[in-house]
Design a protein around this nucleic acid. Structure first.
Lengths: 204, 204
DNA sequence: ACTTTGTAAACTAAAATAGTTTTCTCATTT
DNA sequence: AAATGAGAAAACTATTTTAGTTTACAAAGT
């Protein structure tokens, strides 16, 4: 029985559901039916547990995205699927989680951001290159800047201070923001594809 | 400027979004751009604020339900609309809120439950009576028991321990539970109406 | 000038929780 | 059957938070 993995899985669920502060180590141990000490046997402290959870979430996200990208006809289809996954990821995440991350673990956030170990905040250079190769994105875009912009779009879309929930009821902010930026860097072929998948999506 | 009401409104939003413990009095004051002391000028302590918030939520819920009931053709239509409202209410509520209520304010919960001052946990006797008068519910049902059962259905449907989210992905538990119990107390006319509104709902 | 109303910020006291230590239990090994 | 070891259970303490208070101060109205 791999305690480490079991703890990571359960902690991930609980952190995402209730927030980080709200989940005490006692609560987690009780919920899993193990002793608190066993948790501390594997993880030095709560910070290490949290950072483990985030890294694990990133690994899984990477695997899923890679799979999606390999199985997609073109970059636009892949991006649309990835946006669906991302939306699902953030939809099930308690606002408390994001608030706690900012208030109490901001140093961890910056560390993980720099190390590209935060789910859905990872380097998109490969995607962009593929898009260029497929004639979907314009050849003259600046890879580094565009990549950074896409990351910022995601970050901002999920920032409650930028888009306060009381003013923006719509949950499709990411989509809207991301896709319209995408249009801006697309060729005619890219635009046609975006329109195609947008229509397709609207139908269901 | 009615501080009491403004505080209630903002606290309601924050408690529901982040949970009760996660929202500190400082945070609430900062968010509103007022001083913490001003809050304590109006509310003795956090408990009183919370209880105020819940009562206020109940008042609004009552108004809305009453309106819906007066504007509905029959009891089944009214109940369907009410279920929609209820679903919306619980959908936007952080699991942390419900957990905090149970862990740290359980005495308040029981107090408010007894006083019928918890949103959506209110007496349904009038609804049942109207249903009987309209020939939708059977005449021979035991009002007191049925009423209690309906309340319990709502309570259980929202209890994460009864329906753990990891096992029951479906958010329509309340609907399913409530409506099928309703079928059990309905006349043929009632059943026909339920089927009609179920179909109508399924279409959109 | 004086009073009221509220902000800002420092402070204290209480509560909760992270993390530790101790004791006990049961299963496995020798 | 004794020894070992992994982990449960629960009590403990040390730290951190946060509720709630107090103080000083600023603006606005009288």
């Amino acid at each position: 029985m791999d305690y480490r993995q079991r703890i990571l899985d359960e902690a991930a669920i609980m952190f995402r559901t209730y927030g980080i502060r709200a989940v005490t180590m006692d609560m987690l141990a009780n919920q899993m039916g193990i002793s608190k000490r066993t948790i501390y046997e594997v993880f030095k402290d709560k910070d290490e547990l949290l950072s483990g959870v985030l890294k694990w979430m990133t690994v899984r996200q990477r695997e899923m995205t890679t799979k999606v990208f390999n199985e997609s006809e073109n970059v636009i289809e892949a991006i649309f699927k990835m946006l669906d996954m991302m939306q699902e990821h953030f939809r099930n995440m308690s606002p408390a989680f994001q608030m706690d991350m900012k208030r109490f673990h901001n140093d961890l956030v910056t560390k993980l951001t720099e190390a590209d170990e935060l789910p859905y905040y990872s380097n998109n250079a490969d995607v962009l290159k593929r898009g260029i190769k497929e004639g979907i994105f314009r050849k003259d875009i600046d890879l580094k800047i565009t990549n950074k912009c896409l990351l910022e779009v995601i970050r901002m879309s999920n920032d409650k201070e930028v888009f306060p929930p009381e003013d923006f009821i719509n949950k499709d902010i990411i989509r809207d923001f991301y896709i319209n930026y995408l249009r801006g860097i697309s060729t005619q072929k890219g635009l046609d594809l975006i329109n195609y998948y947008e229509r397709k999506r609207g139908q269901k």
